[in-house]
Amino acid sequence: MNGRRILVTGAAGGIGTSLVADLLGQGARVLATDVDESGCRRLERRFGDRLHTMPLDLTESGAPQRVVDRATDRLGGLDGLVNNAGVEHRAALAEHGTADWTRVLEINLSAPFRLARAAAPVLAGRPGAAVVNVCSIAVTGFAGQAAYDASKGGLLSLTRSLAVELGPLGVRANAVCPGFIDTPMLDVSGLRGLAEKVAAKLPLGRCGHPEEVAAVITWLLGAGAGYVTGQALFVDGGMVRA
């Protein structure tokens, strides 16, 4: 990863912060963006001038193009894009409001599409260029989270489309599907109790760590995954077994 230039969205969250640390630790140059401005400031304090940040709401008009332009300018080009930003909404189908549906789809699916569209001309022809979309085990479908599941399932399908369309340009596209990962999102979503109960019955018997997801993303961005594209890697302790 030494010298590679990577744009990471959702960088202030548990997986995002671990990914930024992993990439910088391996010599990459990173522009990190997140809607959480204070989270971006925390990243700056932790990593100093090794990291560029851009607080941004990816659903704003023109935001994906602006952040791609900023990354290209600050990093001197772009070799990889990680669509990690995401939100969750849990409600029974009858209580799933249209506004909630739209918000989840805009952040989890439409923003990655627009970012990939904006980044493709910059990534094209770059040796080892790659897009990694952070999906979820939710692609398999669960009750009470229709919008989230649909957004992540759509993101997985988008990943496969990108692999086919961008492959001839030398750009790989893959998805990472985390299971229950021990991050603050488990508490925010109210899923910690369920996660720990389910995780205890998994082959590995525990929740995952954000560093373990970050390591897989970093691998997919690197030369070691140079012949891997259009794939979904489940980082879930054995919950989904092919």
Score class of each variant (00 low, 15 high):
7 L>I: 12
10 G>Y: 09
11 A>C: 11
13 G>P: 00
15 I>L: 15
25 G>N: 13
25 G>L: 06
27 G>P: 12
30 V>W: 01
33 T>D: 01
36 D>S: 06
37 E>W: 04
37 E>G: 12
47 F>V: 03
47 F>P: 07
48 G>W: 06
49 D>K: 14
51 L>P: 05
58 L>E: 08
58 L>C: 08
64 P>S: 05
64 P>L: 00
64 P>F: 07
67 V>Q: 01
68 V>N: 03
74 R>Y: 00
74 R>K: 13
75 L>G: 08
84 N>C: 14
84 N>I: 10
84 N>W: 01
85 A>N: 01
86 G>H: 08
87 V>R: 01
90 R>F: 14
91 A>L: 04
94 A>I: 11
94 A>R: 13
96 H>A: 14
97 G>K: 13
99 A>T: 14
99 A>S: 15
99 A>V: 14
106 E>Q: 15
108 N>Y: 01
108 N>V: 04
111 A>M: 00
113 F>C: 03
113 F>I: 11
117 R>I: 03
123 L>Q: 04
124 A>N: 06
127 P>C: 12
127 P>R: 06
128 G>L: 07
128 G>N: 05
130 A>K: 00
132 V>E: 00
133 N>H: 09
138 A>C: 12
140 T>W: 04
143 A>H: 12
143 A>E: 14
144 G>Q: 07
146 A>Q: 03
148 Y>I: 02
151 S>F: 00
154 G>A: 00
158 L>T: 03
160 R>A: 08
161 S>Y: 10
161 S>T: 15
162 L>M: 15
163 A>Y: 10
167 G>M: 04
170 G>F: 05
170 G>Y: 02
171 V>I: 12
173 A>K: 01
174 N>H: 05
175 A>Q: 05
177 C>D: 03
181 I>Q: 06
182 D>T: 10
183 T>M: 07
183 T>K: 01
184 P>D: 13
184 P>Y: 12
186 L>N: 10
187 D>P: 08
191 L>V: 09
192 R>E: 03
194 L>C: 00
196 E>T: 03
198 V>S: 12
199 A>T: 06
203 P>S: 10
203 P>F: 08
207 C>G: 02
209 H>C: 09
211 E>M: 12
212 E>I: 10
212 E>P: 10
212 E>R: 13
215 A>T: 14
215 A>Q: 13
215 A>Y: 02
224 G>K: 02
225 A>H: 02
229 T>G: 04
229 T>N: 07
230 G>I: 05
231 Q>I: 03
233 L>W: 07
236 D>T: 09
237 G>Q: 09
238 G>S: 02
238 G>A: 04
239 M>L: 14
239 M>C: 04
240 V>Q: 09
